[in-house]
Structure formats: C-alpha cells, structure tokens
Design a protein around this nucleic acid. Structure first.
Lengths: 347, 347
DNA sequence: GTTAGCACTCACCGTGCATGAGTGCTAACA
DNA sequence: TGTTAGCACTCATGCACGGTGAGTGCTAAC
C-alpha cells in the first residue's frame, strides 16, 4: 500500500542518517536532508506510527529517534543494496594473497587484516576446520628419545603436525613399520576394506609397534577434533574506539573488548553460522548479551566446495550493512578461490 | 643522614599508599595511617622538600601528592623487598606445565595466562628465538607436486616446519638425496670441514637437486631469521579496566590498548631487555610514549643457559613492584627449568 | 626543629537557569 | 480526509554559582 511506502521511505532515511551520524534523527532533519516532499509535521506523525510499530526508539521524550534492531532487520531484509566493492580492491586482495600460498596461518591473518582495513571494524576469521577431511599421508619423524613428530597430510593437502611423547624409545625401524602400516590401512579404508589383509598387517607388527600405533592414532584423533584447530583470529579490536557510542561509554567498550578477547565466545559465535550465503545477526540476534549492542556479519569459506571456516566482522548495530555484506561476500569468494587454487584440488 | 631517612620513610609511605589507592596522598593520611611519629605539619614540610627534589607531584594546588617516575625508580632501586611467592603457586605452575611438554606454543600461552592470573596485569611472552641455535636434523616431506614440507630439528630439539614451493616437481628420490646431502653437510660443519668431501657430495647431486638445495637453504635462513618466529603473545589486555586511572580516562585506555595490539611495538619493547636479572622500566623509561603511563617488568628465559626469549607484564606505573618482580623472577626460573627439562639437554 | 592554627586554594557536587532540539497536539487548510 | 502551521511542552546539555571538604603553605608559639 502506498501509505506504507512513504512510512518506510522515512524509516529508510532515518536508518541511513543514523548510520552516518550516530545521532538521534529528528523530523526536521529528514525534511531538509532527504526530500520526501512532505512537511516535518507529517513526518512526525509517521514517526510516531513507526515507533508504535516497534521500528523506532526515542532515547528520551524530546530527542530524535533511533532505529531499533527490528528496523535494521527490516532494512537488511528489504532495503539492502549490493555495493560494487571496487574491482581494484579485488585486485589488491589477489596481490596480497599471491605471496602467501600454502601457509594457512598467514593467509588467515592477512584476510583478517584486509577485512579490518576495508570495513574499519573488528574482524574475525576462524582457521579451517579439518575434522571432516580424509587423511592422505602420515609421516613419523624421530626427534629424540621418546619424542616423535607426527605429520599428517589430508587429501586436500593441508599439513598438520604434532609432537607425540611415546611411552618408550622407538627405533627408526619401528617408526617406519608403524608409518607404513598406518598409510596402508588408510588406503584400505578409502577403497575396499579386507579384514584379512588388515589382520595380517597387524600381526606383522611387534607388540611394541602396536602400542605406538595406538599412541599415534590417539594423537591423530586429537588433531582432528581439537578446537585449537578451529580457533578464531581477530584483528582491529581497537577500531571500536572510532565509534562515538563506544568512545563515550567506557562500560560498553569494556564489555565489547572483554568479549572479543574471549576465544570461547568467538568460537561460539561462529559455531552457529549457516553454511550458505552471508549471515547478518543484528543486536540481540547473536544470542550473546556481551555483544548486544553489536551486529555480526559473517560467511563461510570453503575448500573443494566443503565449508571449513568462517570470516566476519563485528561492530555497532549502526554499521553500513550494504557495504559490509558486500565486502564479506567478495572476500569469502576470494578466499575460497585462493584456497582452492593453492591447497585445494586434491583428487 | 638521619634527616633524609625520615624524608624517605615518608616517601615510602606515600608510594605504598598511592599504589594501593590510586588517590593523591595527603599529609594527614600519612600521619594517621602510617605511624611515623610526627605531625602532619612536619610531614607537609617534608613533602614540600620531596616535591622540590622531584619525587612528588601535585596534580593541582590543594590536592595530595602523587609519586613521580623518579620516586618509583628510587623505590625499585632502594626499597623493594623480595616477596615470597607462595610455594603452592609454584606447585600449581609446575602442574600446569606438566601437561604441555614440548608444544612450545602451548607452553608460552599458558605462561602468559599464569602471569596475568597472578598479577592482574597484561602479560607479554615472546616465543623462543631460535636464530642462534644449531641445526641437528633436516627432513623433507613431499606434499604434492612442487610443494614440500621442510622440518628442521635444532640441537636443542626445537622443531620448526615450513612449506616450500619448489620451481619444479621433485621425485621422492631427489628429496632424499637433498636431505641426505644437507644432513651430512651440517655434521661436517659441526666437526671438521673437509672441502674435498663436500665437493664430492655436491658433485653427486644432479643440477635439479642442487637447485632444490638452494631453495631449501633459503627457507631455512628465513625460518631462523623471521621475526614471525620471535613474536610476542599477550594475555589479559582487558585487565587494564581494573585500574581507575585508566577506567576513568578513555583516551589513556585507548592509547594503551592500541599499543598493546601493535606487534611491532611489543617486539621493540622486548628487543631492549637485558639478558640478566629482572628488568623494571618505569613510565617514560620504556622509551615509548604510547606507554608513558605504564611500567614494564620483564626478564629473559633461557634454553641450555642461552637467553632465547622474554616474559613480562605491563601496567600502570602504580603497580606493586615488590610482588610483580618476584612473580616474574619465579616464573622465569620455572619456565627456564621446564624448557630445559623438556626440550633442552641436547648434547 | 616541631607543631598548632589559620587563611587560602581548588576539585567536586548539587542547584538553578537559559538554550535549543525535538516532540505531540490542535486547528485550519486544500 | 490527509497535510501542515503553530504552539505549548519536555528534557538533555551547558554554564554559572555557591557550598563543602581535603589539602596546602605560612606564621607564630612551644
């Protein structure tokens, strides 16, 4: 209905203005800055309606209005426009990635830095989760005495290593036997499993070697399930000082910074992201009262089409959703492409 | 001289009181809370002297006095007492370490956590610098195509790995030749070098293998010199909100947090720590105006008697120097012992 | 040399008042 | 019937003012 169109035009203007200024928006501001073509008195009436509908909030009786979480939700669902994140930025990103093939840690750090640079928000990047990936290759390297380095390569060519402390000192020969056994057994699982083959290989191992197999398998389980391996890197946490609603409110800033430094909260935050498309969680939608004044925009990146991690930004609910969503979208794609080009493509 | 003794008794009381309360200290407070045995009027006179000598500062005409950096310096140099960091804490620390043998990253993180827990300050821990260590062993693992994982073990049994992208695709045989060559050459360097042996080994390599040698050596150089490998881990950055002089001053808090998140500043901060004993840098002494309201207490930890890294705390100049110095001292020793027990002892 | 006493300073806090941005309501207009 | 001008009203903000109290420096007496 035409009626509501005008209402939402006004709401749209208020949201845009508030995102820009962080100041409550009054009816005269709308009349002058956005030419809706009606007087401030009429706008006032509409604003009263919008407040009743739950889209606007008045901090105190004679102040302008502030958009509610519900208003931002409407904005994101209905009014958001795709922004063309300039192609030169894409070029820039590719150049940055180019030098960091393979070294996942570096790639993730760089991604977080770029995110912050582009959005002026705190960025979060989770390292790739490898728990669902298949193992291609196992290596055991003797460090000294009972210390052994385990190197695991997945079919996606992601390399993980961990130190194992065995209960006894192995010979190089024992380690070789164990590694061979494990590699063959893996191939076994991947193709057709023949119990007889497996049993004969196990029997060929000495009791000492069998014990080592157990210890190695335990460590592999640990590597593939530890949350250490799906941890969240943050960047630009002090960007929050840019925003007056935080800069003038020590308590709010304190709560934000304390939350952002709690790795468990960040993991939780990302654990609930959907697999597909960009997720926008506004205010209380993120389910964490520590970040109730904040919105989170995030998306998952993939390796070989399989979602393995999440990147995102956190900032005041008053953030530029159009731009940030586009940035996240673009960067997720770039990251996915980059990973597929460098470590993906395992047959 | 007896005269000065009384002056410094007063100064000592003022410092202790200010460390505890963060409020300017007046003459009557000293008279009542610390029984020096003289009246407030006399104390006032002494305080005026101490101000003239540069030990005290008056924020405004009719306020109490605050110790200057110079006062803290005197305090640390002359009045500081060793605190017995309770033995149960030591036991606690050892228990925590016990489960993290070998995994350097974890040990360093844990150390930072303990430091913060004990001191309620932001803690900094630099990862061990391996640039001066000798290589014991080199392994090359083929990941796929031209990607190779290089694993280096030092004589101290520190394990480092890095991915190399070669300019061509090597065979497993080539990698074996190269690894053998490098391992033999290392042993060569360590004992007596015979040019003829070396030359004959080089000649036994194909041109392709020699090229790989070059690429591997470059990467080794990178590993052993990159500052990535001497980076600084921080913990408890939001502890700063405990302290009223920060909690009531957004600007100061902002500057502190921005500095603490700049890895380059932290590296710089630690690059100037002396090798021996605990270093205390008060206020401007740390040479960074970003942290001019802060003091830094730090000490180096060692592996096999060789200093390889630094641990420390940063906080308001008004910190409990006695306690913090003792904590740092104890923890440095514990860390050094732990490292020697687990990864040290390489013959 | 020490101390009591006193005048003085100044941050801090509460109060009162003017200002102005913004509202809601009413009545007139198209 | 929707729109608008006008007006009374609200309330945060900023500022001036005065009282309070913690603390000082100085002086004079002990």
């Amino acid at each position: 209905m035409k009626d509501n169109d005008r209402k939402f035009d006004i709401l749209y203007s208020i949201i845009r203005d508030y995102i820009k200024t962080a100041e409550p928006v009054g009816s005269r501001t709308i009349e002058k800055k956005y030419n809706i073509g009606i007087s401030s008195a009429t706008i006032r009436n509409e604003m009263a309606d919008l407040e009743e509908m739950g889209y606007l909030v008045q901090p105190y009786t004679s102040a302008g209005r502030i958009p509610s979480d519900k208003a931002y939700r409407l904005y994101v669902d209905r009014f958001m426009k795709k922004v063309d994140v300039d192609s030169y930025i894409k070029e820039d990103v590719r150049n940055l990635y180019r030098q960091y093939f393979g070294e996942l840690e570096e790639v993730m750090n760089k991604t977080a830095q770029i995110l912050t640079k582009l959005t002026n928000l705190t960025s979060l990047v989770s390292t790739p989760n490898i728990s669902g990936l298949n193992i291609k290759d196992i290596h055991l390297i003797h460090i000294e005495d009972e210390r052994v380095l385990l190197v695991v390569i997945t079919e996606q060519r992601i390399v993980k290593s961990a130190e194992i402390r065995l209960s006894g000192i192995p010979t190089d020969e024992m380690l070789e036997h164990v590694a061979n056994f494990l590699n063959l057994s893996i191939k076994d699982m991947m193709t057709e499993f023949r119990a007889s083959d497996f049993a004969s290989r196990v029997d060929a191992l000495t009791p000492g070697e069998q014990k080592i197999v157990g210890e190695v398998v335990n460590t592999i389980k640990l590597i593939f399930n530890s949350e250490e391996d799906n941890r969240v890197i943050s960047n630009g946490v002090t960007e929050i000082f840019r925003y007056p609603e935080f800069r003038n409110d020590m308590d709010r800033t304190k709560r934000f910074l304390e939350a952002i430094h709690r790795k468990d909260l960040l993991s939780y935050l990302f654990s609930t992201v959907q697999d597909d498309s960009v997720s926008v969680r506004i205010g209380e939608e993120n389910g964490m009262e520590e970040l109730s004044n904040c919105s989170v925009i995030s998306a998952t990146y993939k390796i070989n089409g399989r979602p393995v991690g999440t990147i995102g930004v956190v900032g005041p609910t008053r953030m530029d959703y159009d731009y940030c969503v586009s940035v996240i979208e673009t960067l997720t794609n770039e990251l996915t492409n980059h990973l597929d080009e460098t470590i993906g493509g395992g047959k």
